[in-house]
Amino acid sequence: MTETPTTTGRTRYGYFLACEDHGPKALVEQARMAEDAGFEALWISDHFHPWGDAQGHSPFVWSVIGALSEATSLPVQTAVTCPTVRVHPLVVAHAAATSAVQLGGRFRLGVGTGEALNEHVTGERWPPAPVRLQMLEEAVHVIRRLHTGEQVTHHGRHYTVENARLYDLPDTPVPIDVSGFGSAAIALAARIADGFVFSGAQAEPVQEFRRSGGGRLGEQAPAFTGVKACFDRSREEAVRTVLRRWPNLFLPGELGQVLPTPAHFEQAAKLVTEQHVTDSPIPCGPDPHEHAAALREAAEAGFDGVFVSQIGPDVRGFFDFYRTEVLPRARA
């Protein structure tokens, strides 16, 4: 049975596996360390490119999920997969069903409209945001039909499926959670999603999702968010690490959705300074109170699952720090 936190329970703290920043074997090892450290679930990003060459990785997420199913007992969710341009929704449906079987139902499919960085690589035109939302809605419809186990033929506005049937399916349908960062995307999530996916600790987006209907489960639909952190021996070094490894976090507007290559992100990131990092809510350095406060802030905003990702090389130190100092404070 799929493990689904709801708005009636306490917030679960999970770990966010960053495929942009680590190779496949390192991600599997991090998943083991996350479980040992007391994290309760896993997010994993789905990228074709990293945001910049300083990150330098981008393994195929579905292969990593297969390895995770043998390495950990934690629930796993993609955060997020774009099932519209680079990968046909039929293929995503197949991959998600197999992942759910491997994980014994401990899998959720997080989906979103994606970024040109990862999706334009097939040479297809990168559509404007309203069209991407239309494509996402149709893709989710196709995936859900295939997850019934019935033979599916679909001739839609954006996708065609002919005589397709999935034979290996989990006991219960894979929950599909939709990412939303603006009113139009949140409205779509509130209409079609099993849960809501966000990034950050703002309360308004999750409140808007719930005011707009809360998806197919209404008040019981879970909401998940991701936050970044950088554990290091000093705050100053942590700030420099964030600036070096993840400057894309501070780019404004729609740049993250339209820039096509890591080189373009690196050019834009030259405008980002240490002050941007210092002024941000990202906890940096060795103060456990700062890290715990960031987790609690996201929980108090109304999210049922909060997933934290370490920026920087001291991953083992991060997990020791969170196991002994941060998670107990966040849960107190």
Rank of each mutant, 00 (worst) to 15 (best):
T78H: 08
A67K: 10
L68Q: 05
C82W: 11
E70N: 03
L68K: 10
V87N: 08
V85T: 00
P83G: 04
T81F: 11
S69I: 03
G66I: 05
T81V: 13
P75H: 05
T78E: 12
P83K: 04
V87T: 07
L68W: 05
V76W: 07
Q77D: 08
V91F: 02
S69Y: 07
A93P: 06
L74V: 01
A79G: 15
V85H: 00
L90G: 06
A79Y: 14
T78W: 11
H88W: 00
H88I: 02
A93D: 06
I65T: 08
C82F: 12
C82K: 11
S73R: 11
S73V: 03
T72V: 10
L90D: 07
A95I: 12
E70V: 03
G66L: 11
L68S: 07
L68E: 03
S69N: 06
A71V: 05
G66F: 12
L74W: 09
V87M: 04
T72E: 04
P83R: 02
P75E: 05
G66D: 06
V85C: 00
R86Q: 04
G66R: 13
I65E: 06
V91S: 08
P83V: 01
T84Y: 01
T78L: 07
L90C: 09
Q77F: 09
V80P: 15
A93H: 10
C82S: 12
A79E: 11
P89I: 10
A93V: 11
C82N: 14
